[in-house]
Amino acid sequence: MLRDITIGQYYNTKSSLHSLDPRCKLIGLLVMMVLIFVAHSVFEYAFVAIITIALALLSKVPAMYILKGMKPVWLIVAFTAVINIFMGGGEEVIFTWWIFTATKESVLLALSMMLRVVLLVMVSTLLTLTTSPTVLTSGLEKLLKPLEKIKFPSHEVAMMMSIALRFIPTLGEEAEKIMKAQAARGNDIESGGIMKKISGMIPLFVPLFISAFRRADELAMAMECRCYAGGCHRTSFRKLEYKKNDIVAFLLMVTACLVIVIYRMVGF
């Protein structure tokens, strides 16, 4: 059902990954992304893959759950692989089919691209699985705070995210209700061609948008009544503090980067 949509699918359990500060995890994600992108030797790929698997184990989230969360990206992964295999160019032909030719280089390229996408998605899934959306939002707000000096609205962005998270289930529930009400009036979005399906969505979306605007209006008034006036002079209910674990995590990140840098310099 629509009301069960949970953004990022937070998996509630206790693990050393769960207990890390959200800012630390966000920076960690950034570091991992960079490492995954710069990797291009077998050693480097193995290195980032091992880190990712280690993180997954640390998170104490069941492997099946992580893989389920990645379901929507498998199609993209397969698609990039196919494109890379046949468009890669290269010399050593493995097989030819119609106008497409697969070479050793292109297959290797496809494999490495696949690995990259899978690892990237897995690392970001791990972040959302181990961090509740609210904590993530406040972490993001704190992390972006310095950007306020260049007029970046970090508080507003975080506020918007948090309100969106708050209202997605409510609007989902409402969408379901409207869908039922229109179905009772004979609206049919299951059968028929694409055009018919699209026109069948209008009776759903118009009322949904109107309701969303009405909610926004009322919410704005309610927020004003509770003395909301933007980000200045605001204190926070949630205190973010770096703990010992976070320092260890930062040290590990630095070490991981150093390993890659030294590997490149020495070039084993």
Partner: peptide, 25 residues
């Protein structure tokens, strides 16, 4: 079947068009 707060399901540009929606379907 008329749902609770049925006014939230209106969507057409005119009253008559909205009422016609059911018979049209």
């Amino acid at each position: 079947l008329v749902f609770q707060y049925p006014e939230h399901q209106l969507f057409e540009e005119s009253v008559i068009k909205d009422i016609c929606f059911g018979p049209k379907n």
